[in-house]
Amino acid sequence: MAAEIEIHNTNRLIESYDRDATTILGFWVYLMTDCVLFASLFAVFAVLRNNTFGGPSGATLFSLPYVLAETFSLLTSSFTCGLAVLSAQRGNKKHTIFWFGVTFLLGLIFLIMEISEFHKFVKMGDSWQRSGFLSSYFTLVGTHGLHITIGLIWIAVMCVYVYKRGIGQTTLKRIRMLSLFWHFLDVVWIFIFTVVYLFGALHA
């Protein structure tokens, strides 16, 4: 009996994966075009990184330990997002909501740290109006932060959705797309961390 249920469920899963594969590929194509957006912002940053116009450079402005904490927070949230997908695949509603909750909190910590960093810079007079370097810095990191904000809203909506409707095939598909989005933001952050912060510190 148990084996029959397993076979039935597995067959259902294969069918749904075939059907969902197209949708998820479409979402993947969107993510790749988003990559091009980030690439243009990276190009602008790379061109303007030394144009400080007498203002502070990256080396004097950024605190590396602070950014490392931000990075770990986002990285861990990417991991817990994976755990949420795993729970959803097993059909475990409670665990899915729990892990998405943890992901949301870690993402929120990241966002708050980023915003308070921005706030500190602006208060010191080093806003986006100060120099070409700072304009491109705020645009690049701010665009990533905007994506994180949208991701957080999506995670919150997903939690409510799973709580109310449970985990069906459609929900699983959406959860997989959400996880792609969140992991993708983590991938973009690797390059922001390296190019903006670490390379910036080396320029001293």
């Binding site: 148990a2 249920i5 397993e6 469920n9 097993r90 059909g91 475990n92 985990i167």
Partner: peptide
């Protein structure tokens, strides 16, 4: 899906 106990 909830029927399957052994998640591994």
């Amino acid at each position: 899906m909830n029927k399957i106990k052994n998640s591994q």
